[in-house]
């Protein structure tokens, strides 16, 4: 059986959404990693046949609804990251720990940059460097994937 049935995927996405919906405020908000995108990236690399660009788009729309922000901005950011993850999916499963962490970090940053561009077009003020803190905390959270049994390659011998 392939890893990642629908229950696992959508269950974990729901869990990520719940974490995202926790009443974060103040410092917590600036550090909050993008749980939903992390879960999405994990499944995109682990089970690309079950979790694809469409799922990423749907989760982005849900986040936009929850945020009350402009419809489609998170969706756009997520599908760009999802597309890049799928492009390199076969290679990522062969990456070592450092390469994998770097790859995922780049994807998180790219998603944030897409979001930032949309926001700047919408007339928002440019944010400071703290805007990218969620990507840092996100990649720290990704270490959980690297150093535990839920590896993206589905192979416990490789890193």
């Amino acid at each position: 059986m392939r890893p990642g049935n629908n229950l696992e995927i959508y269950g974990s996405l729901l869990l990520g959404l719940l974490l995202y919906l926790l009443p974060w405020a103040g410092v917590g908000l600036t550090f909050r990693p993008d749980f939903v995108l992390l879960v999405l990236l994990y499944w995109l690399i682990r089970a690309p046949y079950a979790c694809n660009v469409g799922v990423a788009w749907m989760m982005g729309i849900v986040i936009d609804l929850a945020d009350g922000s402009l419809f489609g901005q998170h969706a756009l950011a997520y599908i760009v990251a999802a597309f890049l993850a799928l492009m390199y999916q076969r290679r990522v499963t062969l990456f070592n720990r450092l390469q994998q962490a770097g790859f995922v970090f780049a994807l998180l940053i790219i998603a944030q940059i897409v979001l930032l561009i949309v926001k700047l077009f919408g007339g928002d003020q440019p944010a400071g460097w703290t805007y990218f803190l969620p990507s840092l905390t996100g990649i720290m959270l990704w270490q959980l994937v690297i150093y535990s049994k839920i590896k993206v390659s589905g192979d416990e011998n490789r890193g």
Partner: peptide, 21 residues
């Protein structure tokens, strides 16, 4: 292909953003 999906869904997102704003 992922690229076809990317093009389709980005168009959809951009249309949604325009309609919403």
């Amino acid at each position: 292909s992922p690229f076809a999906r990317l093009v389709f869904f980005s168009a959809l997102s951009i249309v949604l953003m325009a309609v919403d704003s």
